[in-house]
Amino acid sequence: MLYLQSAILALLMVLPGADIANGLKVGDQAVDFNLKNIDGKMISLQTDKQAKGYILIFTCNTCPYSVAYEDRIIELHQKFAPKGYPVLAIQPNDSKRSPGDSFDKMKKRAKDKGFPFPYLLDETQETTSTYGATNTPHVYVLNKQADETFKIEYIGAIDNNTRRAEDATKHYVKAAVEGLLKGQKVETTKTKAIGCTIKWSS
């Protein structure tokens, strides 16, 4: 039994592509974008000159896990936007494959929930692909550098309990941003969570 386990482990370690995740990694420079917000204006990382960083969240209308996190995303924005780390939500799904995520439906959802942050559409899915976002919601915490570029400090989940915010015991994004605000190194830089797949255009 132990032999089998170690054999499997060994196999996993030597398998090429055991870490196939493409896209940007923690420590990489964030790639800028220019995406349309629900109010029709284009937004990039340079739009908000005051921002010390961003909580970039790939999320959508239709994924129940995204919906489960909506209130928590609003809270993150309300807590950290005044401190220089606003939320930028990006909707990554192709609206032909996921009609509930169309630009009009995005506008409606944002209005119904009163999103206080921009909700951008990645129509070409290039930004989603560049960042390597794989599921929704998928968070990237960015921190501004001396040269005005942004560095990726954290990739992953918002916290460790999708079902109930009150039951979460680890608040990954909050901890990361709070660390950055104190000038500390982010401790947990990468987490994983179950989520909905990105609906890529075929």
Binding site: D19, I20, A21, T134, N135, K192, I194, G195, T197, I198
Partner: peptide, 10 residues
């Protein structure tokens, strides 16, 4: 389950 799994399903 698998180190390559990003967490999306199926």
């Amino acid at each position: 389950v698998d180190p390559s799994w990003t967490g999306s399903i199926p």
